[in-house]
Design a protein around this nucleic acid. Structure first.
Lengths: 215, 215
DNA sequence: AAAGCGCGAACGAACGTTCGCTCTTGACTC
DNA sequence: GAGTCAAGAGCGAACGTTCGTTCGCGCTTT
């Protein structure tokens, strides 16, 4: 029985001990397959190997499960920002973040559910605070890194930081969206070249003095 | 009475004559508000000022309405590509396309429903052919324009066209997604600067000074 | 013996869709 | 022009199904 990690998660395996986790994982798989509103609780129960009665001991409603999943997605994505502080350059950080995002197997929930979550957050006010809290934090972290990169000369100081941030955020979201539409894209491999393109966009216009961004 | 275009579309008005149009417009408004699967047919009927019996004369099912809306969204987006042929530069074309996308009032369906449609297409095989047909056509048109821009020297001929296309496509989708999350963003005004950033990314490296691109 | 996890049948509500009816329309007869 | 009538647009109650959720009861564990 080698297929234990991505198995349908019946009542066997190490997750026997954490029913909440089991429900969340099962729900994520179902939601990826069918979306939030086209997935029934019975499906989630079946995927989790659990009866409705048992499941409702751990979550008061379907919406609570959705909120918990969005919460986890957000913090997973937020964790990627650690690369911003541990990398020498912004471009290197973006490369690492992208590779981490797209090389994970099974694919990360935030990659698979990105568009679904965006659509849901934009219309369900109960999800807004959950989403925004992390969003603001991420924006702040990125803004700091961007400012540092400008001070360092890696990024053109003349650039409007809000515009740059919108571009990078949009690119990230957009790539996840396109991955849903074309799962065969070898995104992890493409990250270095994509990050290089971003680097060209942000770099100061050809300086007469080549005091470069190199070490 | 200036509010005739975005009215709830009761049985009055000039659209009295085209019930199919009335249903599609009403459904689009409902789907933007609540998403495809969280919107009931009764809601659509109410919005269209029509009974279920009447509505089902024009569409055999809810899915047929969704398919028709996706079809329209695609062709509306595809129409934007005309700017590619009528503009002198790629950057100018992208600016015009972005401004057309985001300055329309009421906002275009493809802006409001973009993420929802992506999520739905990625999981409903019946939407795939509708989506892909236009997608392929758009990709081909953009590839042609990109090739021309490279020949012209506006875009670095050394760049991999597939990578560039992924970036531009992702950026477009990503900006629409972020607009859903932050509707207050003045996107139409930001387009020239965004397009300029894209231009910097694509431009050939400065001829006089060779800045060492690491890697 | 007590406690509580887990079960699955069952609930009321709401879903997408249908059906038999009324009302409107416009061409045809006289 | 008045009267007739077939055709179909539109209606809305009602259909069978499925939804999210509940509840009372066995079963396990201590």
């Amino acid at each position: 029985m080698p297929a234990a990690a991505a198995a349908p998660a019946t009542a066997s395996g190490p997750n026997r001990k954490d029913p909440r986790r089991r429900v969340l994982d099962a729900a994520a798989r179902c939601f990826i397959r069918g979306g939030f509103h086209a997935t029934s609780m019975h499906e989630v129960c079946a995927e989790a190997g659990m009866s409705p009665g048992a499941l409702y001991r751990y979550f008061p409603s379907k919406e609570a499960i959705i909120i918990a999943i969005v919460e986890e997605e957000r913090s997973a994505r937020s964790a990627l920002l650690a690369h911003l502080d541990s990398s020498a350059t912004l471009v290197e950080a973006l490369t690492l973040m992208g590779e981490a995002l797209f090389s994970s197997d099974p694919p990360m929930v935030c990659v698979e559910l990105g568009p679904e979550i965006a659509a849901e957050v934009s219309r369900n006010p109960r999800l807004r605070p959950v989403f925004d809290e992390v969003e603001d934090e991420m924006d702040a972290a990125f803004l700091r890194a961007l400012e540092a990169a400008q001070a360092r000369g890696e990024v053109d100081p003349a650039l409007d930081r809000d515009h740059v941030m919108l571009m990078i955020n949009a690119l990230g979201d957009g790539i996840m969206l396109r991955r849903r539409l074309q799962p065969e894209l070898p995104l992890a491999q493409m990250m270095p070249q994509i990050a290089t393109l971003i680097g060209r966009m942000l770099a100061p216009p050809a300086p007469s003095v080549s005091s470069g961004a190199s070490r």
